[in-house]
Design a protein around this nucleic acid. Structure first.
Lengths: 237, 237
DNA sequence: GTAGAATTCAAACGAGCGTTTGAATTGACC
DNA sequence: GGTCAATTCAAACGCTCGTTTGAATTCTAC
């Protein structure tokens, strides 16, 4: 058994699991930190302490590796979201569940994932938030396929819980919800809004959702666009 | 005067303005479409019908070009936001302006920019939304510097308009607002939420803000986190 | 018209990229 | 212990990248 020097270890606990898992873990970390394009397979494989060719051997290509990184966490999380929604719907048979309950069913699996460091934790959510904004077509197509069923189910549930909203209105509002959610989960903080608030503390996850949920619920429940208040574009004086 | 063939024209109206402007226009388009890393200077310069070396001659480097692309639109827009906020504050002296008015002062310059095709229009806003989510450090540092003053002023204004919110609460909510805003402006629609709603129609810009503003205002006005509703993590029924 | 600065140009540099190859090594099973 | 498939490995392939260079060209001003 040769010594296996691990040349440029980037704090990934390599040399533990099997090759595919080590690659996935290193990829999750590096794609999150630098993005897809800016992460080279050479830095990735040396961080995972595997041979350069291993990515193409195990996953086929860099793009397929990226999809594997996403699907490993995303598939179970979205499945859990659906299960939770069905449970919430079963708890109040006949009547539609409240807007809050539906939203929580959507947020809680993400929060649980964020806390489970064994499943990528916050790293993965940041990666996911960035993937939402990535222009690469293969990422966009992959994400819409992964989310299609979950989003569809929730849209129907919200539609029943918010009867004052037309389907089109709700579509827009879910768009806003996903925006605030992904931006928050990504934890990018591009605008340095936070001077002292740290997102890295473990206890802050739950607090974050306790702040996000009321904001989103209030937005969702807002009156529908009907009393068309005129939006005067810089009325001259 | 040689014929100048314009090899791989990508629908940029090249050969009109001066070199620097042609480069900025092509860069705005391509950075929006493919992102920073995935846009090569070779495709960019040939789209702009300028020599490959022109970028380094006029801007120094690819990174400096990217910053120039952003600053060309962002600087005037954020300045206009500040002017508008001051105008709104002057209109009701003594009393703080309403939450709606403050938010509109923030949104209207973005809408105006989106409509002005001569100033990049929606292309630029999509680029901006993507820049928010880009992990590259030089982008993040640049954006926070560009936004610092504007965000600070608005935070103070909102703080006066929403006295029930602590400074920290407001910071979070502005974070959510920026998330929904940038995600919406970016028009990424990663989740294919929209089947038939098209964002490309010219008239839809105003409609978009008329839908976004009530959502955000309701979220901002929501009660502060005090009646700490317990967020039970999947109560194992 | 000519000097001198500014700009444009073709060409090349060195480096890094994703991927492929074919031999070496390992592991499982008869 | 031998066989065969699965895996790992070092090396190379072909290509594209951002940047630099130095000569050619254009522009400006006397």
């Amino acid at each position: 058994m040769p010594s296996r020097p691990a040349r440029k270890a980037v704090a990934i606990d390599a040399t533990s699991a099997d090759t595919k898992t080590r690659i996935l873990d290193a990829a999750e970390h590096l794609f999150m930190e630098h993005g897809f394009e800016a992460t080279s397979l050479r830095s990735l494989t040396s961080a995972a302490s595997v041979n350069l060719a291993a990515v193409n051997y195990d996953f086929g290509s860099k793009e397929e590796l990226f999809q594997a990184v996403l699907t490993r966490r995303l598939d179970p999380m979205n499945q859990e979201r659906i299960v939770l929604l069905e449970k919430v719907e079963r708890e109040a048979p006949g009547r539609p569940p409240s807007c809050e309950k539906i939203l929580f069913a959507m947020l809680v699996p993400a929060l649980k994932l964020a806390r489970d460091e064994k499943r990528g934790g916050k790293n993965f959510l940041r990666l996911l938030g960035r993937a939402y904004a990535d222009p690469a077509p293969f990422i966009r197509h992959f994400l819409s396929a992964q989310y299609a069923e979950m989003i569809g189910r929730y849209k129907e549930a919200f539609l029943r819980a918010l009867p004052h909203l037309s389907r089109q209105e709700l579509t827009w509002r879910l768009h806003f919800v996903m925006g605030a959610l992904s931006y928050t989960l990504a934890g990018t903080d591009a605008l340095k809004l936070f001077s002292q608030v740290t997102l890295t503390d473990r206890d802050n996850d739950e607090l974050l959702l306790q702040r996000l949920a009321p904001f989103l619920v209030a937005g969702l429940k807002a009156p529908a666009l009907a009393d068309t208040r005129k939006l005067e574009l810089v009325s001259g004086d």
